[in-house]
């Protein structure tokens, strides 16, 4: 990222990015079918202004809208994927990687940034679901741990927005072991009494759910996100009965005690800043959005 890109507000970058997509200014909400003005949806953090349906957000947009616009520094961006198994199915892993890099403009499925939240230092990471399903391979694990290392060095809290289908099959056991690697890093963070806030977004399943995403000191989910260990299709095939309504959605997890709270995306900055201020024993920060 050039110095100029770093200082321009995320909203401008988002618009520039959107313009390259050959779509019109109007879109339809997939839940309520309302016709929406795209720039307004973007200003609303990809939440439908009519029905509050949370659409998926790219990792970079997510981080830039979450962090204060000043002093953002990307961590571990130079860590890039390799193909240790020379894996190929119908396509080569190399080609899949190249295609994903081209389509998303990202090197791999996790982006980590050091920055500020309401003036206080923080490291935030986000999964890019459109990069091979947000799957966790060696690069995701390494970037995640570098983010945690930065927190340990500078005594900062860590926030991760997960959106992932799980471990990346194309790196075999190396991907599975990233579950242990990231969990071990979070244990180190916990030993130093630095908070980890896990924000589970749609969808978070498999090896990411069964490691870093469930290890938050506070686990937050966005409304109606699909969150689980096994995907609903696998469970359906195993139990051979129809799954209950709302199964594996955020509300189901809250009811079963798996998460602390469900928070609207537009309130995440306020809520996380408040949680961190209390856990880090700091005075409260001013709210972006006054309580209704």
């Amino acid at each position: 990222m050039t110095w100029f890109e770093k200082i321009i507000p995320s909203r401008i970058k988002t618009e520039r990015r959107t313009r390259s997509v050959p779509e019109g200014l109007w879109m339809k909400c997939p839940t309520c079918d309302s016709v929406l003005y795209r720039p307004e949806v973007e200003r609303n953090l990809q939440v439908c202004p009519k029905c509050s349906h949370h659409m998926r957000v790219g990792a970079r947009d997510r981080l830039l809208s979450f962090l204060d616009p000043e002093d953002v520094e990307e961590l571990g961006a130079a860590v890039m994927p390799e193909d240790p198994l020379k894996f190929r199915d119908s396509k080569k892993y190399r080609d899949r990687l190249n295609a994903a890099q081209k389509a998303t403009g990202e090197g791999d499925a996790l982006i980590v940034m050091a920055g500020k939240l309401k003036g206080e230092g923080i490291v935030a990471a986000a999964f890019e679901f459109s990069f091979l399903g947000g799957s966790m391979g060696s690069v995701v694990g390494e970037r995640f741990v570098r983010g945690v290392d930065h927190c340990l060095r500078h005594r900062l809290p860590f926030v991760c927005f997960s959106a992932s289908g799980g471990a990346r099959m194309q790196e075999g056991l190396l991907s599975l072991l990233q579950m242990a690697k990231t969990s071990a890093a979070l244990a180190a963070l916990a030993r130093e009494r630095l908070p980890f806030i896990s924000v589970l977004t749609d969808p978070t399943t498999g090896g990411v759910s069964a490691s870093l995403a469930m290890l938050g000191d506070v686990n937050i989910a966005e409304p109606k996100a699909l969150i689980g260990f096994a995907g609903p299709r696998v469970i359906q095939q195993t139990v051979r009965e129809t799954l209950p309504e709302g199964f594996q959605r955020s509300e189901f997890l809250l009811e079963h005690g798996a998460i602390d709270m469900i928070v609207d995306r537009r309130d995440l900055r306020d809520r996380i800043a408040s949680l961190l201020a209390i856990l880090m024993r700091r005075s409260p920060a001013a709210a972006d959005r006054p309580a209704e």
Partner: peptide, 22 residues
């Protein structure tokens, strides 16, 4: 992978072991 496993948070059970064993 079953309904009960999800209700009782299979993900957390596995994640916690990774965390503690480390």
């Amino acid at each position: 992978p079953g309904v009960g496993s999800e209700e009782r948070n299979q993900s957390e059970a596995i994640a916690r072991n990774l965390f503690e064993m480390s």
